[in-house]
Amino acid sequence: MNSSLLIEKMDLYRDWLKIAKHRLTACGFDISQLVHDEEVSLEYFNVLLHLTIPIQPRQVFYADAFSCPPELQAGLLAFIERIESGRNLRPHMSRGVKKVANRDALRYDWGIHHFHLGATLAPDGFVTRTEPILFAWVAHNAVYMLGLYPHGAWSQQEVLQVLYRNWPALLSPYTIKGASLTHILTDQEVALARKAGVTVAFQVAEGVAVVPPGGGMPTSKHSFRAVRDSDKLHDNLDSMMEQLRDPTSAFMQEYERKGVFKKRTLSFSLVEHSDGYSLVEKHNNLYFKVGGIPSLPLPTMVVNH
């Protein structure tokens, strides 16, 4: 009869934080000012959700009133070529994406990116800055060109209205059904609400209101989506550790029945490899695939092409 299992102390969340720090550093972000674990996790998800765009080919669609001034046509064509050929869009993004704690209220609130349409690359790999700038909705396999706006038009609600007028299905998940707003915010009020960390609804058409399609921002000015995903991962890793510490849990009992725990002292840790994450039990040399943990692309996947 097998002896009782002895589970050594583990901290899967701490293991993941080490991985997150390595990824952020490898991607060129300075994390020296991130003192607390929660900050590391939040900024990891901020980078993943808002400062990087997965590299893959996408179709390009244009809003009904889209136009581009002649002096930016060359930059626009170069940007479109990048989109359709699946090249890195980072050179056209704000230089703020180089900063781990970059805050982008437009992305956080409305889920909209802004891009520069310079035609030449500067030494740091970014195209020359332009005015006006392109606002676009970036989906998994498409980019929806909304229009060109002055730099600083971050709270101009016309942008959301253009998105809804042309592609209402994109905002369908965020539409408040059967509701109308008693007060229609001005663009200035939208900016003030963001500054205060207040989440508000927006009218995109007569009788049509939406909650922030980007998720919005709490008073900390972080992205709600980053906060949510960070908290969810923490909870999931805590739950995983509870199962590993309990010899009677379904997970442990399944592998007990299979007889894989030849050595009865177990030591679990979380590791990252080329295609995801695994739990490693070092005494028995066991690996268990772990899903649900997003990976920040390493530099070989995010360099300019």
Rank of each mutant, 00 (worst) to 15 (best):
150 P>I: 06
165 R>W: 10
207 G>Y: 11
195 K>W: 14
175 T>H: 14
190 V>I: 14
202 F>T: 03
150 P>S: 13
194 R>T: 08
191 A>C: 11
183 H>K: 14
194 R>M: 15
158 E>H: 10
193 A>R: 04
181 L>D: 01
167 W>H: 15
174 Y>I: 01
186 T>P: 00
216 G>N: 06
160 L>T: 00
194 R>Q: 10
157 Q>A: 04
151 H>G: 11
207 G>N: 12
188 Q>I: 13
160 L>H: 03
156 Q>K: 12
152 G>E: 09
199 T>C: 13
176 I>S: 10
190 V>T: 05
181 L>H: 03
174 Y>A: 04
175 T>K: 15
158 E>V: 09
171 L>N: 03
201 A>K: 05
172 S>R: 15
170 L>K: 09
154 W>P: 03
177 K>F: 09
197 G>D: 11
157 Q>P: 07
186 T>C: 06
154 W>A: 01
192 L>S: 06
181 L>I: 06
168 P>D: 06
183 H>A: 07
197 G>S: 13
159 V>H: 03
193 A>P: 04
171 L>E: 00
182 T>A: 11
212 P>R: 08
174 Y>R: 01
166 N>R: 11
203 Q>Y: 05
151 H>E: 10
213 P>V: 01
191 A>V: 04
201 A>W: 07
188 Q>P: 04
202 F>H: 05
204 V>L: 09
155 S>L: 06
182 T>H: 14
193 A>D: 05
167 W>P: 00
203 Q>L: 00
214 G>N: 07
154 W>V: 01
215 G>Y: 04
152 G>W: 10
208 V>L: 09
170 L>F: 11
189 E>H: 08
186 T>Y: 07
198 V>D: 12
182 T>L: 11
170 L>C: 08
208 V>S: 04
199 T>R: 08
206 E>D: 11
